[in-house]
Simulated scan of single mutants.
Amino acid sequence: MDLKSLYQEILNEHNLHPTHKGITENATLTLQGVNPSCGDNIYLQLKIDDNGIITDGSFNGSGCAISQASVDMMLDDIIGQPKEEALRLAGLFMDMIQGKETDDSKIEELDEAASLKNIRTMPARVKCAVLGWRTMKDMLEKNHTEGEGSQSHCDL
């Protein structure tokens, strides 16, 4: 199997059988992420303990295969991590997508999310790929809580 086929398989698996789609009971933080250019719309929920560790997370909403798969992969990467590590991974993901980070050994830290590396060659799809990551970054930096009605808009 070639690399392109493997990446497509990973994307399809996360889109068709997402591990983290649903509701997180007693979520600590909740934020809606919107990509107005194509209609992707997610609600991201995270549960964070007193030590700043992300202990659980989920997403709901609708969107294209790339946005849905990317947020599911992101949750795989950040659950169990301190908030600071989640923010570092978000920065690494953004740098990868924008072509600022090309060191494969660093990109491998993103695990399956690294399969989205070549999205940067499809500018119309970049906002789809970064929606969940941008929403998580906004959420953690601003400590959004459920019921605030806030949104994170996906702009690069």
Results as ranks from 00 to 15, higher is better:
25 E>I: 10
26 N>S: 12
26 N>Y: 13
26 N>F: 07
26 N>K: 15
27 A>I: 10
27 A>W: 06
27 A>R: 10
28 T>S: 14
28 T>V: 10
28 T>P: 01
29 L>V: 01
29 L>N: 12
29 L>F: 14
29 L>G: 03
30 T>A: 07
30 T>H: 14
30 T>Q: 12
30 T>L: 15
31 L>D: 00
31 L>F: 08
31 L>Y: 09
31 L>I: 09
31 L>C: 08
32 Q>Y: 10
32 Q>A: 11
32 Q>L: 07
33 G>E: 06
33 G>R: 09
33 G>W: 01
33 G>M: 05
33 G>S: 10
33 G>D: 03
33 G>Y: 13
33 G>A: 11
34 V>G: 06
35 N>T: 05
35 N>M: 00
36 P>W: 15
38 C>T: 01
38 C>W: 14
38 C>Q: 06
38 C>M: 02
39 G>F: 05
39 G>E: 09
39 G>A: 08
40 D>K: 10
40 D>R: 13
40 D>M: 08
40 D>Y: 11
40 D>H: 15
40 D>F: 08
40 D>E: 06
41 N>H: 15
41 N>I: 12
41 N>Q: 02
41 N>F: 11
41 N>E: 06
41 N>M: 11
41 N>A: 12
42 I>D: 00
42 I>W: 10
42 I>F: 14
42 I>Q: 05
43 Y>T: 11
43 Y>Q: 12
43 Y>G: 07
43 Y>D: 12
43 Y>V: 07
43 Y>L: 11
44 L>K: 05
44 L>D: 03
44 L>G: 00
44 L>A: 01
44 L>W: 08
45 Q>D: 03
45 Q>E: 10
45 Q>G: 03
45 Q>W: 02
46 L>F: 14
46 L>A: 03
46 L>G: 03
47 K>T: 08
47 K>P: 00
47 K>F: 12
48 I>F: 07
48 I>Y: 12
48 I>V: 15
48 I>E: 05
49 D>S: 05
49 D>R: 13
49 D>M: 07
49 D>W: 09
49 D>Y: 09
50 D>G: 09
50 D>R: 11
50 D>Y: 04
51 N>W: 02
51 N>L: 04
51 N>P: 02
51 N>H: 09
51 N>C: 06
51 N>V: 03
51 N>I: 02
52 G>L: 05
52 G>W: 09
52 G>V: 09
53 I>K: 11
54 I>R: 07
54 I>T: 01
54 I>N: 02
55 T>H: 13
55 T>A: 07
55 T>I: 07
55 T>S: 13
55 T>P: 02
56 D>T: 09
56 D>M: 11
57 G>P: 06
57 G>F: 13
57 G>H: 10
58 S>E: 01
58 S>A: 14
58 S>N: 13
58 S>F: 10
59 F>M: 10
59 F>D: 03
59 F>G: 01
59 F>E: 00
59 F>Y: 15
59 F>V: 05
59 F>S: 00
59 F>L: 06
60 N>A: 15
60 N>E: 05
60 N>S: 13
60 N>P: 00
60 N>Y: 12
60 N>I: 03
